[in-house]
Design a protein around this nucleic acid. Structure first.
Lengths: 337, 337
DNA sequence: CGATATCAAGATATCGATATCATATGCGGC
DNA sequence: GCCGCATATGATATCGATATCTTGATATCG
């Protein structure tokens, strides 16, 4: 019966439904539903039989139907900020292993990952998601508030305390990253450190605070060199400007490996040696930093793990469990600079 | 009536349905459906009125319901190969702007992007997708065949002709990339070129073929230096081995900027000058190559555009339009090497 | 003027799965 | 022999949207 339709108004590859399986097995479709969802309400033998039948005929669950009935989508929307022209976009190497971690964790929990950009987050599919993960500079106040209105479980990647702390934040412990750079400089007797980066960015600001606070404990006040671009040229330029201003410095903490490498290049040009005259620490532990000459010391963040954490938190929220913000430890990788 | 339910078995945030809107507007729900989908079957005035009402009450379409009825998911699954430990994974900087392009194009066409890894592509949600995009080394024969069985419109990123040409392939024109490197070397009078890369990888193989063929037309046969890793160290090592074997060479075409930079570093160590003694061309146009000293000549691929193209092709396939494989032009960026 | 378009809106059935309530059967205990 | 209870299965309603078929009203034409 059910196999033959009078009409097929919405032509499509005809796929097996539970009703079809039910007919094949000689049971009702509810029994099939129960058998396939491992319910104990159905006899073990029948269950096996139905499952075997499903496998044999390549039965595929209709996700839309289930989602409609259950009023959930089993989907988490990941909203990334896309600023294609910026020096540090979400499409940069690192934040992307975040996506990797997220995907791994969510899919293995049976959830789907819906990738979207900020622009079209008004999207019906996004609103239908069970939860939200915000990545990138999108973690700014306005954006966060915007998505908050959707009333969905939401987790944000970024700096702690960012955005009214009404929502869960996961990020790497930028403050601690700054502290460990400071500790390193102190331990090797540097007295005139410089910070290169953009304190307007909440994550960088945390690095700066950690750096400054730790140094302050030893009576040292670092110089802040504001640089918005995270390019190598920007690093070169920063150091040149220091030299022109005849600033005395013996250590540089840069907010990215690229900046750090630029700084080193400029130092070499100016006849300074690294690390003898000036010690340099970068941020992110890019593969290039390790191969740089001299090999770059840097602060490493574990993005992949961050992604996993983000995913776990949304899932917890979705299941109604209490969740707290969390900052992940960073590691200072000491190489030759 | 419809606002009040006797029971609420699956408790959830109560959201407005078309039926609710219909009651508010004093029309039937079909009219609402038509009004919201801009159908001309409904009076312009009524349409406006209903749309205003929908906006006012923050009506949200239930995607599952629509998808169920229409028997499509408005979703394209993007399957990425995840090999976290490899030197060149999908989570590398570049292939990721591919994702950017894909996302942009698909979402602006009203489709959702479902991100998955290879492992769980048996996933119900993936099977429910309207189309598939394969990224990364997943474009290998076995993987392609696996997904082919799903019978979904599918587009693969990779080298032309790869995998039985039963399916659509989009990629950058690696062969042409090889040719333009060869042309450049010929034009500056180099006679002893070397190719560094891994010809087992289909895309690299194309570069090699283009390189070899073009040179052959001028009676030159390049040396093939096989290197599986795409690290800077690998490039250093490659050049050292050339020097140890006392091979004579005056040009290097490397399959990645990192390899090329490593090669240059080794050349400098050996007292050779670039580009006077040896000319070097890399691949990918990474930001670092441009800032390298000396600035690296390289072959640029436009990943973002590739993503857009992939997306357009799946959409075309989904809509039943004929589609052809396409290779995107590459650009030789001549800098100082 | 009657016949036929044209336009606007409604009635109904349907997509595929599952929650809930109902039913049938078997079994032990008093 | 009847009640209660557990086990296994079925019937029905429902999730929210839309395709298709109808219906009614107005317009157009020979």
């Amino acid at each position: 019966m059910s196999g033959i339709k009078k009409k097929q108004p919405l032509a499509q590859r005809p796929s097996l439904t539970m009703a079809d399986l039910a007919e094949l097995a000689g049971v009702s479709k509810i029994t099939v539903s129960r058998a396939l969802s491992e319910s104990t309400l159905v006899n073990a033998e029948t269950r096996e039989r139905i499952q075997a039948l499903a496998r044999k005929h390549g039965y595929k669950l209709n996700v839309s139907a289930r989602n409609l009935r259950l009023r959930r989508s089993h989907t988490v929307a990941v909203i990334v900020e896309m600023k294609p022209s910026s020096g540090r976009t979400m499409w940069d190497p690192y934040p992307l292993s975040l996506l990797g971690g997220i995907t791994q964790e969510l899919t293995s929990a049976g959830y789907s990952v819906l990738l979207t950009t900020r622009q079209d987050a008004g999207n019906a599919a996004v609103q239908a998601a069970d939860g939200l993960i915000l990545l990138g500079q999108g973690a700014r106040q306005d954006a966060v508030r915007l998505y908050d209105k959707l009333g969905l479980p939401m987790v944000v990647w970024g700096a702690a305390g960012q955005g009214g702390d009404n929502h869960t934040v996961v990020g790497s412990d930028n403050r601690q990253g700054g502290i460990s750079a400071a500790e390193r400089f102190l331990s090797i007797g540097r007295r005139h450190p410089v910070f290169i980066g953009n304190p307007d960015h909440p994550e960088m600001a945390q690095r700066l605070f950690g750096f400054v606070d730790e140094l302050a404990g030893h009576g040292i006040k670092p110089l802040l060199l504001r640089r918005a671009d995270f390019t190598l040229e920007s690093g070169v330029d920063a150091v040149r400007s220091l030299s022109e201003r005849k600033v005395r410095f013996d250590a540089i903490f840069a907010c990215s490996d690229l900046l750090a490498m630029g700084a080193i290049r400029a130092l070499v040009e100016l006849g300074q040696t690294v690390p003898n005259d000036v010690s340099v620490i970068g941020y992110d532990d890019t593969p290039l930093g390790a191969s740089f000459l001299p090999p770059l010391s840097t602060v490493r963040q574990n993005w992949q793990e961050g992604g996993v954490l983000l995913a776990r938190k949304v899932l917890a929220l979705i299941h109604g469990q209490p969740v707290q913000s969390q900052m992940m430890a960073t590691t200072l990788v000491v190489r030759s600079t």
